[in-house]
Design a protein around this nucleic acid. Structure first.
Lengths: 276, 276
DNA sequence: GCGCCCATGGAACATTTATTCCATTTTACA
DNA sequence: TGTAAAATGGAATAAATGTTCCATGGGCGC
């Protein structure tokens, strides 16, 4: 255990492992260098793979991979894997502890807060399937893709959602106009009956977004909506409104469902534009 | 293999697993419910833990944990673990191959695409727990909260992330400055050594963001980072860089992990500012 | 309060995974 | 081109991990 390969001592953390990898890989025989190259680029696989997996992926025999681990300073594969698994498990927040402090102490324990938001995220993602139908999503994508220019409208919490869409659609060469409202421009003249619009607003609904979307609808723009409540005024005039539900943590909501749904929507619109 | 516990069939992906978990956990005996509760909140541990680990963490005997796996529909622990390990290894299929399968049929079926993004979202959320440590997150929150003004920097794909943070922090009365780059202003004069900054950039890294963050660091601003790659230049000068991994669908990534982590981070910063 | 059924934990068993050993091949150098 | 040393792959062995079985105990209905 203490002696392997010239008294080399085992790395004690990931950083050291990477450094060691870089240090030794140059003067390693062919097969072991293959291991080093692959491993360096796929460090994250170690924690979840068997030696055979890593060996096969590196294109060498399992025994060779173990020799590689030893050349790096470990006693074998198990020791190296333990190091990579430790980072996942050492900060395992105790379970009873979590339940005890459901309250405002939540914000003291950063790991726990993070875990709560991840949990809320999972729930939000699950809820998309319950509130958005296949056909509804397809109709919205089709309708938005028909427009000459696609107008994106959203403020406050919804702004991140539409700006993300603007980025994605722009990358796919879809003509988009992100209504930022920055300079309070009157954008009405920019919209024609050939255009389409996606308006995003969450409760409590933004007056400006509703007003601008309504004005657009009155000009003949094909207006679609995204919201988190059936009470949303967009239902009054939009051709279709998609609903999502974001679960909250301590009164705050992340945007998992909205971002995920609109990312999928963007890809669908981009694909349809490409076809036409 | 085909028959276990009332003809239950094994979940085939993470989404299904979560749903099944929620569905069955109510009418599970005491010990198995412990497993369900713990597992539901620590899904990311499955890939890197043994049955004994999970059993111990849940407070039950290994055999009980296996019965739990079977109650959920798997043949045993191994099958369940394989599902969670697959998420790390399925995207091994080479790069070129992935580009080829830009799935024309994927984009036709809107429901399918939506489901794919939801599944990728679940995986991304799980990976936060694996790449961000409790302490790292706490240090970044503390560092950012110390600043007189909090500067937020991010473009392209990262812009939605920082604009969401700007909204959340603003709501909590934290003085933030969102560097939009809109007017190509020279923002350097606005930054002092009492300030803090969060720079967000994903591969391939934005030159402007790196340059501006570096300039800020040189002026003495406490610069922290968020990225998706260990090769990120922010590591060269930032005090600490958080890493997330967003799983992709047909070459596109939603922002689940980034949005969730930064939402938690915003709440932490807000809470710390309120204390001071 | 009695007996039955189900849940539980530990021990035995089976399987998978890691490691070592050795025969064979390759490489380096004279 | 011959020889020694190093590297390699596969087979044998050791260790660990997963799964099943069964005796025990506790809860619930009768």
């Amino acid at each position: 255990m203490s002696e392997n390969e010239g008294g080399l001592v085992a790395p004690t953390n990931i950083t050291e492992t990477i450094e060691r990898l870089d240090a030794v890989s140059d003067d390693l025989p062919k097969r072991l260098k293959q291991c080093a190259t692959f491993t360096r680029r796929h460090l994250h696989l170690i924690a979840v793979s068997t030696v055979s997996d890593m060996a096969a992926a590196s294109g060498v025999a399992p025994s060779a991979y173990i020799r590689f681990c030893q050349a790096v300073g470990f006693s074998g594969y198990s020791e190296m894997q333990a190091l990579f698994r430790a980072q996942y498990t050492t900060f395992r927040p105790d379970y009873e502890q979590r339940l005890a402090q459901l309250g405002p102490e939540l914000v003291r324990d950063s790991g726990q807060l993070q875990a709560e938001f991840a949990e809320a995220g999972h729930k939000s993602l699950l809820s998309i399937g319950n509130s958005v139908t296949n056909e509804g999503l397809a109709r919205v994508a089709e309708g938005l893709a028909q427009g000459r220019v696609l107008h994106l409208l959203g403020m406050r919490r919804a702004y991140a959602v539409v700006s993300n869409m603007a980025y994605l659609l722009g990358k796919m060469d879809v003509p988009v106009l992100l209504h930022s409202g920055v300079a309070r421009l009157d954008v009405a003249p920019l919209m024609t009956a050939e255009d389409s619009m996606l308006a995003v607003t969450f409760a409590p609904f933004s007056e400006e977004v509703i007003a601008e979307a309504r004005a657009a609808a009155e000009r003949g723009v094909a207006v679609y909506g995204l919201s988190d409540s059936e009470a949303c005024p967009l239902f009054e005039f939009a051709r279709e409104v998609l609903l999502v539900h974001e679960h909250e943590v301590a009164g705050f909501r992340a945007l998992n469902a909205s971002i995920t749904l609109t990312t999928a929507l963007s890809v669908l619109v981009g694909a349809r534009r490409a076809e036409h």
